[in-house]
């Protein structure tokens, strides 16, 4: 022992350093593509900037303007609508999953057919629903006409337009939740169900007290994906209405795009301010989700 060389710096600290080295690539990516842009967005939101000329520091003026902007409130209201109604995808997905969770001939085909809407792009979904709702030749408006005698142009009516777009969004989102639940259903503990059946539990009570608790992880993921999906609802709004008629189907993410990047926009500061607000709203949910995950890990 006496003539053993003193261990080098690397040898001595290997265990401490190694994790950081392995984390570095991911960490650097995260820094460059997530953290720095967030800081930049916040920074830009305090400026008046057209993306070309000089940035002019205007403090919180963008936020003050936002608070006085009718479109902002419309967008906010619609975002809440999206959040609440989009969650319907979860029970709907569960219902479809339960329905498909049986062994009959060709079930794989049915499953893939139900999953189909999630595979096609949101843009295509948007276009299909636009034609579905289109006055004169759309299937839906024809149906409404046959039913009530009057025609309703969903996407041109400020009362229905947001619901119309959300319905289009629910179609693929339901398929997504369905897949999550189908995998969850495969992992159910058959013994528990058997025991429950012996205790004479069936139907809804079996579902509520035995099956659903076991599906909690799937529900959690479905929740996260759906909430985030509702807040980023951009593609469908852009394709189906571009925020119209007269801004009544506006949501925050599209409003941000329109102000900062569209043909009539180039107000980078204002767009960034909207982005910051959207980020803060998302942060509330993300924090809740992360807290829950931490709690679960501690309880293990």
């Amino acid at each position: 022992m006496a003539n053993a060389k003193p261990a080098g710096f690397w040898k001595r600290n290997q265990l401490k350093i190694a994790p950081w080295v392995f984390l570095a690539p991911g960490g650097i990516m995260f820094l460059i593509y997530v953290l720095i842009p967030i800081v930049q967005s916040v920074w830009i939101s305090f400026h008046d900037w057209d993306g070309l000329g000089d940035k002019v520091w205007i403090g919180v003026a963008n936020y003050v303007e936002l608070l006085d902007d009718d479109t902002f409130y419309t967008a906010l209201k619609n975002n809440v609508l999206w959040l609440v109604l989009y969650l319907l995808a979860i029970p709907m997905g569960l219902a479809v999953a339960l329905f498909l969770n049986q062994t009959v001939f060709g079930i794989r085909l049915y499953k893939s057919l139900f999953f189909f809407p999630f595979v096609i792009s949101q843009v295509v979904v948007g276009l299909m629903f636009t034609w579905f709702y289109a006055p004169d030749f759309g299937l839906f408006s024809q149906f409404i006409k046959w039913l009530t005698g009057t025609e309703v142009a969903i996407l041109a009516d400020e009362r229905f337009v947001t619901y119309g777009i959300i319905a289009a969004g629910l179609w693929p989102q339901t398929a997504y939740c369905m897949i999550l639940y189908l995998t969850g259903l495969n992992n159910l503990n058959p013994e528990q169900i058997e025991a429950a059946r012996m205790d004479n539990a069936r139907g809804l009570r079996l579902l509520w007290h035995v099956i659903l608790p076991q599906l909690a992880p799937a529900t959690f993921i479905a929740m996260v994906v759906t909430v985030i999906g509702a807040l980023r609802s951009f593609d469908l709004v852009s394709i189906m209405t571009a925020g119209g008629p007269y801004g009544s189907s506006q949501v925050l993410s599209y409003f941000m795009y329109e102000q900062a990047l569209s043909e009539y926009g180039y107000r980078m500061g204002y767009g960034a301010a909207i982005a910051v607000v959207l980020f803060l709203i998302m942060m509330v949910f993300i924090t809740l989700f992360i807290l829950r995950m931490i709690m679960q890990e501690r309880n293990r």
Partner: peptide
């Protein structure tokens, strides 16, 4: 035209 807000000019 009714429902003009739902359609493009070509429609």
């Amino acid at each position: 035209l009714e429902n003009h807000a739902a359609i493009d000019w070509q429609d």
